[in-house]
Design a protein around this nucleic acid. Structure first.
Lengths: 194, 194
DNA sequence: CGGATCGTTGATCAACTTCAACGGTCGTGG
DNA sequence: CCACGACCGTTGAAGTTGATCAACGATCCG
């Protein structure tokens, strides 16, 4: 499974076997059990996480004390609070494992050195960030374009397996509405299927 | 003013004078008058835009035929529909000048060659994208965290000069509500100032 | 078996939209 | 340089969407 990260890197830039080993030595392998925490808001997000298996979620606490999920990361996705990571300042987010999760982890300093030593890694992360940013642009469009009910249906259609995988209250939290409203939508959907 | 882009690059990575000239040769300087178009939805976003002076906005057309603004770019910001740019596929967005605007422009192929020729530019764009993505994460948090009225006040406090600079209907469009509602908010604010 | 967690229901309420109409202002053509 | 039309901001009434609150049943897990 350690091959998984190198494969991901090699899908975006070329790295010979010698470099591959050296690059991997910058990372630690970490396992989390369900609901275990990786980052608590108010602390600095010192690391960058690559999910090998399982699922992470990033969230913040609203004024009312509710956990508002803003992102999930599943297999082959990178996750961090980039504002905190980049400036090594206090994070407004927390990160937790949704289920039992295995990751490759690299600290801020180590990632800086990794890119300094291997310019190919600048290219790799450039591509990772560019793709993530493109997805973020599209997501903002979705948020403007669709009502919450539509967002629920679209999410279900786009990621049917993922909807099964996580509890409904987390999905409601991610989509930005209440579990009660999700119930209402589901009832409607069930009564008059398309 | 051509120095402006190189300065921006040099604030993130080091480039000697010889390389600086070579790098700049990949870009074209372009001027737009107010309301002129750079990209129309349905066409491929072939270029990446760096604003020297002025202001661009990115928007899409909703089902109801309304222009929904999703982003602005002012001095020293990069803008593109990255999904379209990256995959050279049809864009769902349009880009227009809000006011008279000058830009440095680079095409997709040129940018690929630029980065291949100058690995420092991988680093530069890596940093540009990382910062943009961090801002996007924070923006999504804001959208979840605050009511539309709060978003208006926060935007005003964060970018007071920018609020003056653009027409109100564009601000309403960016914040995702109607000009009518913006009027209502302003009336309330005016009647009972903090 | 017992308690916490999760999903559901229904009633009420707040935030924001829609629509129609009006006054001011800005820029453009004559 | 003036007049006219288009565009912009504003108002108010009525309508929707989604939140809130309280309560209940089911299920999971120890």
């Amino acid at each position: 499974m350690s091959a998984q990260l190198i494969e991901h890197i090699r899908s975006r830039t070329s790295v010979d076997d010698k470099d591959a080993a050296a690059i991997l030595s910058f990372f630690k392998r970490v396992k989390l059990s369900k609901k275990e925490s990786l980052l608590d808001n108010g602390t600095v997000c010192r690391s960058h996480y690559f999910v090998l298996k399982g699922c992470l979620r990033m969230f913040f606490i609203t004024e009312k004390g509710v956990e508002q999920t803003t992102q999930f990361a599943i297999e082959n996705w990178w996750l961090s609070d980039y504002m905190s990571f980049q400036t090594q300042s206090a994070s407004e987010f927390s990160i937790q494992a949704v289920e039992k999760t295995e990751m490759m982890v690299i600290d801020f300093q180590a990632q800086e050195k990794l890119m300094a030593d291997f310019p190919a890694m600048d290219k790799y992360f450039r591509m990772v960030y560019q793709k993530a940013y493109a997805a973020a642009q599209k997501r903002v469009k979705y948020m403007y374009e669709h009502s919450k009910e539509e967002q629920y249906h679209l999410f279900n259609e786009s990621f049917p397996e993922f909807t099964q995988r996580i509890p409904q209250y987390l999905l409601a939290s991610y989509l930005g509405f209440t579990p009660e409203y999700l119930s209402e939508i589901r009832k409607k959907t069930f009564l008059k299927p398309v």
